[in-house]
Design a protein around this nucleic acid. Sequence first.
RNA 1: GGAGAGAUGCCAGAGUGGUUGAAUGGGACUGUCUCGAAAACAGUUUUACGCCUAAUCCGUGUAACGAGGGUUCGAAUCCCUCUCUCUCCGCCA
Length: 423
Amino acid sequence: MLQLGFIRQNTALVKERLAIKNFKAIDLVDVVLQFDDQRKKLQLESDTTQSKINTISKEIGQLMAKGEKEKAEDKKKEVAVLKSSLQPIADQLQKVESQLNDALVTLPNLPAKSVPPGKTPAENITIREGGAKPKLFPGAVPHWDLAKKYNLIDFELGNKITGSGFPFYINKGAKLQRALIQYFLDYNLAAGYTEYQPPLMVNEATAFGTGQLPDKEGQMYYMNEDKYYMIPTAEVPLTNIYRDEIVKETDLPLKMTGYTPCFRREAGSYGKDVRGLNRLHQFDKVEIVQIVHPDKSYEVIEGMVAHIEKLLQSLELPYRILLLCGGDMSFASALTYDFEVYSAAQEKWLEVSSVSNFETFQTNRMKIRFKDSNNKTQLVHSLNGSSLALPRIVACLLENHQTENSIELPPALHPYFGSPSII
RNA sequence: GGAGAGAUGCCAGAGUGGUUGAAUGGGACUGUCUCGAAAACAGUUUUACGCCUAAUCCGUGUAACGAGGGUUCGAAUCCCUCUCUCUCCGCCA
């Protein structure tokens, strides 16, 4: 969430930036400030009264010790009066605080200066492209056909066992998944990330910390009995590792990576977008997360982009990097780059990674801070990126590298897969 | 799932109703000493939100001893609920 002090000091700028993000309820900014004014006023009243009560209570203690009971009784009456006057103020304060909080939490993060205006994905800016689109032979087919032909993935079986969007990976298909995960993790470890295997279910505080709640509640599977959410991405447990902590400045940057299945309800999705591996309810992903010094985050995000770009190059897939426009960015992000790979048989681009700088939006919710050289506590910045989401990578590997009677894998995968091709 | 014990500051660990935001020890930091270091000695050492302020300094108020309620003039200390940890039993990959 945004920092109140910042909103107060830069009200015009905040409104201007929110507009770039295509946020409709700009008036909420003023509402927030009004609630904050009320809150301060009420707190002053409440604190002053409480202070008086505390003073008198101490006096009562001293009187009792001296045995001056009557005087003490008089003081008690005094306190009773103060307390009854405090009650309505305290109630009001609590109400205003929760109203303030509700409104504040509804405001999305401000887009960075470099974010282009725009409302739809069409207005995203292509930063660069790499890798050549392959020329497929006549008769080349989409990945769902290849998956069947080589018995790699069974979608129907997944339907039987769970439901649509929960495929089985079989034989070489399962091994390819395992190879990719291992390769991606090793690649991240070599770049200095620490590997974590986090829980796949998280509690409410955790889901709130990274911004899934209250905004994207319907996107997550929920365990009603235990009040746990299935993670939609490893970002959620990984970023929350340092929730409510004041880290040492010298420990920054904190770099975490982890492989997890991800669970998304994807309510409302249908049609050809969900065909095959394009959109699933459960999929595998390797994630990278960084907690960094606020001065460094924009440098770090470029580093993360370069990191993922090299990984994609090693897979020999045609890709492009998009700078997302204001309207297409997520609620919590200040700057997002999307990576898309070209699916040659479907003849379309598929998103396989999203790299974002959240600045203090998440860390303000999670209270992840550090002490700077002046010994002042301030919020760190958080970032994350997929490196990478597996299904669409698999789809493109299968489609783009298919030959008449096999699928050739890029050399980087050979040691992990144990063979140069899928036959 | 059943029975019992417990949850205090960076860590260990006191504290069972009244100057306790919190003893003591350790750690960390600062200073003295030293060529430097160690030792010794002295000092400092939580966070959030108000007020004051040019100030994120200083001063000052309120709150926080797992979380949320309650009793009381007053609660870390008493009561209730929840969460978590430990021990024993049961179950079990």
